[in-house]
Design a protein around this nucleic acid. Structure first.
Lengths: 148, 148
DNA sequence: ATTGAAAATAGGCACGT
DNA sequence: ACGTGCCTATTTTCAAT
């Protein structure tokens, strides 16, 4: 991980479809060299994937909510996570320090769907309670970190 | 937005660097047709960007935390958001319903950096208080929604 | 450095309005 | 007749080794 690697990562973080040729021009190497570096970054799991960013409203998922999950004492944390994983509306899942063991970011199309989602979550084995807050707007999301 | 568009979106959501040629094969169209569709999806802001997913630990940002921000009555919400935006450690920022007006997802390398970050946030004009919780682990993040 | 593949672009055809 | 969406054909650029 030298400066050039960092520069490559930085470029791909915001323009993941950039060609190797273009990357090469920007970092001052040849295309094969850059290909080799990117392959190595992928192999070392510095780069773990490439995603198109989708406007969720455009695909009928206009509501974003955060749901804290309080687990029941004595339940297996991993089992709770596995159960939550089955629920496709849960875009992100963090195991947290604090009273709420999990924090979920979810997306749904309607309030009715959110209600249904919360009831499904609250019925999962090991789940003692939920606390839902709604995002009125997303100011920004998944902004790349500038560690350069 | 027909079924083919949805399929293209779905493919790019998980493999953003897939070539137009490969996309074309998968959806049963020619490469130029797919290019045209993708260009239109970008123009209509259904696809808003392409990002490489980076293993944050690998770039020295091993700590993920969530910070709720209580704003002071009478302060301009937008100004608070603008001030927060200047802080690069804040990867996501949601304007929330509830007591905490903003919820931030932040990444730092060390606890000392987190402490410094929280103090900077708490000093911003309009910020009345902060509540920080730490992610012990990320089970998953930015998982694509299956609206297909 | 070379070869095959893909991207980009232009032009035309068919369909539906 | 016009816009739309797909195709083919060609040139240029890129990927891969």
């Amino acid at each position: 991980m030298d400066d050039i690697d960092r520069r490559i990562v930085q470029l791909l973080q915001t323009q993941a479809r950039m060609s190797y040729a273009e990357l090469a021009r920007q970092v001052g190497l040849t295309s094969p060299s850059v290909q080799e570096r990117v392959a190595k970054l992928e192999r070392n799991e510095v780069i773990t994937g490439y995603r198109a960013e989708i406007n969720s409203e455009a695909i009928g998922l206009g509501i974003t909510a955060l749901i804290g999950i309080v687990t029941i004492a004595g339940s297996e944390y991993a089992d709770v996570a596995d159960a939550i994983r089955e629920i496709t509306e849960v875009e992100s899942c963090y195991f947290m320090a604090g009273e709420e063991s999990y924090l979920l970011k979810v997306r749904v199309g309607t309030m009715a769907e959110l209600e249904y989602l919360v009831t499904r979550l609250s019925r999962l084995p090991g789940v003692g309670g939920t606390r839902t807050t709604i995002a009125l707007s997303t100011k920004w999301e998944s902004r790349p970190q500038d560690r350069s």
